[in-house]
Design a protein around this nucleic acid. Sequence first.
RNA 1: CGACCAGGUUGGACAGCCGCGGCUGCAAGCCGAAAGGCUGCAGGUGAGGAAAGUCCGGGCUCCACAGGGCAAGGAUAACAGGUAAUGCCUGCCGGGGGUGACCCCAGGACAAGUGCAACAGAGAGAUGUCGCCGCCUGACUUAGGCGGCAAGAGUGAAAAAGUGCGGUAAGAGCGCACUCGCCCAAUGGGAACAUUUGGGUGCUGUAAACUCUAUCCGGAGCAACGCCGUGGAGAAGCAAUAGGUUUGCCCGACCGCUUCGAGGAGGCGGCUUGAUCCUGCGAGCGAUCGCAGGACUAGAUAGAUGGCUGUCAAGACAGAACCCGGCUUAUAGACCUGUGUCGCAUA
RNA 2: GCGAGAGUGUUGGAAUGGUAGACAAGCACGUUUGAGGUGCGUGUGGUUUCGCCGUGUGGGUUCGAGUCCCAUCUCUCGCA
Length: 114
Amino acid sequence: MKFSSALKLNHIFRRLYATSGFANSHLVLYAKKNRTECNRVGITVGKKLGHAVVRNRVRRRLREVYRLNESKFAPGWDLVVVARSRCIRARFCELENAYLSLAEKAGILIPEEL
RNA sequence: CGACCAGGUUGGACAGCCGCGGCUGCAAGCCGAAAGGCUGCAGGUGAGGAAAGUCCGGGCUCCACAGGGCAAGGAUAACAGGUAAUGCCUGCCGGGGGUGACCCCAGGACAAGUGCAACAGAGAGAUGUCGCCGCCUGACUUAGGCGGCAAGAGUGAAAAAGUGCGGUAAGAGCGCACUCGCCCAAUGGGAACAUUUGGGUGCUGUAAACUCUAUCCGGAGCAACGCCGUGGAGAAGCAAUAGGUUUGCCCGACCGCUUCGAGGAGGCGGCUUGAUCCUGCGAGCGAUCGCAGGACUAGAUAGAUGGCUGUCAAGACAGAACCCGGCUUAUAGACCUGUGUCGCAUA
RNA sequence: GCGAGAGUGUUGGAAUGGUAGACAAGCACGUUUGAGGUGCGUGUGGUUUCGCCGUGUGGGUUCGAGUCCCAUCUCUCGCA
């Protein structure tokens, strides 16, 4: 994790929810530029998804997706990822595909140099 | 061998790569005046039996009262013991269930008072519909009146202790025998309580209806509480054209400066050594207690255990958040103990 | 962490411990109309043989629980 940290402050979450996000059947992604060189990533797993064990598993997997793919992301963004209920039974590769396709839609990936 | 009963233990394993939170160390590096912070490396460590529900009881912290009594409100309810304490646990008594091992029970007082008991039924806590018997009157086998009775009928969840015999005009605890309930005494027991004992007595049920009796209870909760605290608001002191900021200097522009300071955002502490755990011996029917030796075993703060691969297994319920003791609920599979129970077979 | 409330036919929502489903909406059928709408009337929990089971679930108290008591599940709300 070279240039990323966890997003913890409640008012930044509020600010990001006010923007229009990107969604697919597994996830919702909110993104906004900050004025630093770092990325701050917040994960929201609501109480609807299940008990604490289920919610922890979803959160850990989403964090792991970002960690393994950090090199593909451009720095200088605040991200909030909201898990939807299909994440409970999804495999890891499905979560990874959903995450990366949303990030591509939002335009926060480094464009691949051929 | 099969079906159970009671109590207890455990709660996927191994290997490889990447990754996370504390802790310890480095005569490591960087930043800093220092305290310390950040990074790297190494070592070791890192969720439960229910961490859950928040149903009880405490510790701890602050507030209130700082002494006692009464009232209100709430909780508990056989007896004895255990415990820091409990509404918990153990033993025992009583009641109920099971062939049995064994299991279940809020289990004080309606004989202090009040309330309620729908429908049905004459009558629901005190009576008399049909009825039975005697006497009188009219009539001639029935009607009316007066008196006695509560056996039988019928209603209901419950009907005036129950059954039998005697007794009588008919009947009736009116008398007797047995049974049942309550009260008193005696005996046994530490007590609840028990009784092939003696005497008295025959009273509906309901207090998870109000109530009465006995005992206990001050309130809030780690988001408690303590400390630090940019800016801004406030107070005091000083200074008056010096000082500060803006680019090192000049010009220009902007701003009074210093100290104190309740406290909001935020940060730090509280934060894990404790009614702790393990082993052995002893006391006790047991819960539990005593003694000796040993161990240190998460401490996060948007909240640390994940991802991929391989082998076996396929298998649950489920994630600490100040800490303990219980209760309740959810749980796949595996294992252990018993001079345990029942059935079948054999001897 | 602390605290409060609710759960009844398809839906909203009543019911003092005493025949469960008042009232309204919806639905079905009949009637009114040339046809529809409106109006009026009847029915409507499950299974079925009288009957039995039905108030989130499981127990208990009571002659009798939607109601009272205990436990539990789900949902909603409040405070910080």
